[in-house]
Computed example of a mutant assay.
Amino acid sequence: MRILLVEDETDMARALIAALNRQGIVVDHATTLDIANEAARNDVYDVALLDRKLPDGDGLSLIPILRGVQPGLPIIVLSALNSTDHRVAGLDIGADDYLSKPFSTDELLARIRAILRRPARIGEASITVGKLRFDLNGRFAEAAGIRLDLTRREILALEMLMRRAGRTVSRHALEEAVYGFDDEIASNALDAHISRLRGKLAGAAVQIHAIRGLGYVIQASS
């Protein structure tokens, strides 16, 4: 899962990023409307968390832009502006939820899970390739019915490959799925993750092939 966090308060942003990372979520952090606008036009997100009082304007002004580039994107407003009028304004302009500061990270995570459980967003529940099944809601993988012990980044890489099973996924797309845009990425980091992932998929009747100069593809073993 990849989340766009638009928040200019450094301490809050760090706390939220740490909490989300512990849940296996990649976070792209934007501190201004301009940075968030550029991020939304270049990446696809599962959820956007949006502060209102930003250095270059009201975060609510970003909602129509986000809706324009990704119509189904769930948006949760996080704001100290918590009067009834403020909450109504946020929901009326298109936010899916409005959480008043201060709030607990546990509550935020619960609200994210609730939004992603909505029937209109669930879609298919899992993807199966060979004997490997990836649960899209629980975000775990099973090989021949046995749950695999995967790291957060291995799960993110496998999810991207499974969603595009049979098609080549570029290195760039995989790196964007696995790392936030603030992460420093060693040149061989992705290859190391894929190598370890291959080892954990023994018995799953799948293979991850490297396509020279392009990326990787996951396919059922013949």
Rank of each mutant, 00 (worst) to 15 (best):
L60D: 06
A114M: 15
D106L: 10
A39H: 09
G24Y: 09
L50E: 01
D51T: 00
L116Y: 01
E184N: 06
D106Y: 06
R167Q: 15
P74Q: 09
I112L: 11
A114C: 13
D46V: 04
A220K: 00
A141N: 03
A80I: 04
K131M: 12
Q23L: 10
T168K: 08
E184Y: 09
E7R: 07
V206R: 05
L214Q: 15
R117E: 15
L148P: 02
T31G: 00
S170H: 08
E154H: 04
R139T: 08
A204I: 00
I65D: 11
K200Q: 11
D34H: 06
D11T: 09
K101M: 14
G138P: 02
E38F: 03
A30P: 07
E176G: 00
G90V: 03
I211C: 13
F181Y: 12
F181T: 03
D58K: 02
N21T: 14
S195W: 02
L150W: 09
M160P: 07
D149H: 14
I93Q: 02
A18R: 15
E38W: 05
S100A: 14
V44P: 04
A95G: 01
L190R: 00
G72M: 07
I35C: 06
V88K: 13
R133G: 04
L4F: 07
V6L: 11
D182C: 06
E124W: 01
A177F: 02
E38H: 08
R147G: 00
A141I: 04
A89E: 15
R52H: 11
R139S: 08
I194W: 04
S104Q: 15
N37G: 13
T32P: 13
M1I: 03
